[in-house]
Design a protein around this nucleic acid. Structure first.
Lengths: 211, 211
DNA sequence: GTATTTATTTCGTGC
DNA sequence: GCACGAAGTAAATAC
């Protein structure tokens, strides 16, 4: 198999599993590497089959996957029908929505200014007002790592240039905060808050919630 | 199917493809979503099969995937044997090697000091000398994003403490540079250069190249 | 074993 | 459609 596109790749002849889905995607799997195929083509793409060769092409990008077939050991096709989607729970968007509804867990008398408060380099998760009327930017993560602290630092730098809301201090809120991230945050005067998802959900009022 | 682990997810009953590989991984596919499974478990994990139910567990993390099986439409098993690995070409290491051989694309009369120039927090992709004898640190990415600018900033901070080479300025070189990364770079006095892989390869002298 | 960086990242979401 | 941030990111590499 040969792939030419964002990179060039070659896969020697061996026994492989080729999966073709209804969405048009083609994946070539080996018996390892967990769920990831060795090579693939995402839709929209076209498959042209000739004797001993499949040519899979992505029209727009020009990516091409050429599969040379020496022998077909099995060729099966199944109708899977409609797919009721996967329901996920506990991702970051949930945390943000839950915390936005219950900003008082950050401090008594605090209120939400807005979610996704825009800055020149992207939106801050939450902008809130503390009980003394001061501005607080909140960055929410499931896993709090150094990247998140850097991100909040950049936001704070920009927000503090805006005289309408400056001074703005920061809160780094996460379900789990890595020690190094906590050290960096504290060093920069950023407060760390651990979020308890189940507790937030318990506080949540089902009649007003978004999910 | 129900997953409890880093998040909680539920997948309603429907016709699915379950793939079990020799490495022990289990993936549950729908007829869409390209190569990505709806849910999966990476090795090492154990599968316990009982009547109408598979219980897949990751011992260390406690993640668990419970698959309820109403009907088996097909159950096939194939030996794939040994897998000669995938050979890739055109990734970041290549860009670095190509640019190292043709630093003059950055400026006439420029020369390479060394690739992977070491600092206390890791190696800089390239350290070069411009036509006036000044030091320039080059960070190379396929896709230039904010992270890369932060990385180069940290390197520059350290390199500029070294009196043997200071002052050192920075160049952020990438095949594609995101607007926000460019803004941040310019704000920090870092020059941005767009790399053309095919052009670099064209300039490359095949008799001296590393690949 | 831990931390860092890449990835044909893919994927969703806001503008 | 573009750009940006999240992902059960996973996987490879350096330390």
């Amino acid at each position: 198999m040969d792939y030419v596109g964002r990179l060039t790749a070659h896969l020697p002849m061996a026994i492989r599993l080729i999966m073709v889905k209804a969405d048009g995607s083609v994946s070539v799997h080996a018996d390892g590497g967990a769920y990831k195929p060795l090579n693939w083509m995402t839709p929209p793409c076209t498959v042209r089959e000739s004797v001993g060769e499949w040519r899979v092409e992505h029209g727009k990008t020009g990516d091409a996957l050429v599969i040379t077939i020496e022998e077909i050991l099995a060729d099966r096709s199944y109708e899977l029908g409609l797919d009721p989607g996967l329901q996920k729970d506990g991702v970051e968007a949930h945390l943000q929505a839950l915390l936005a509804e219950r900003v008082e867990v950050l401090g008594a008398g605090w209120s939400l200014v807005r979610r996704e408060y825009p800055t020149a380099i992207g939106p801050v998760d939450l902008l809130v007002r503390d009980d003394a009327g001061g501005s607080v930017a909140v960055e929410i993560k499931r896993r709090g790592e150094i990247d998140g602290v850097e991100q909040l630092t950049r936001y704070l730098e920009l927000l503090n240039r805006d005289p309408r809301i400056a001074p703005v201090r920061g809160i780094f809120a996460a379900q789990q905060i890595k020690p190094q991230a906590r050290v960096l945050a504290v060093d920069r005067g950023i407060e760390c808050v651990r979020l308890d998802y189940d507790q937030l959900r318990g506080l949540d009022d089902p009649t007003t919630r978004l999910f």
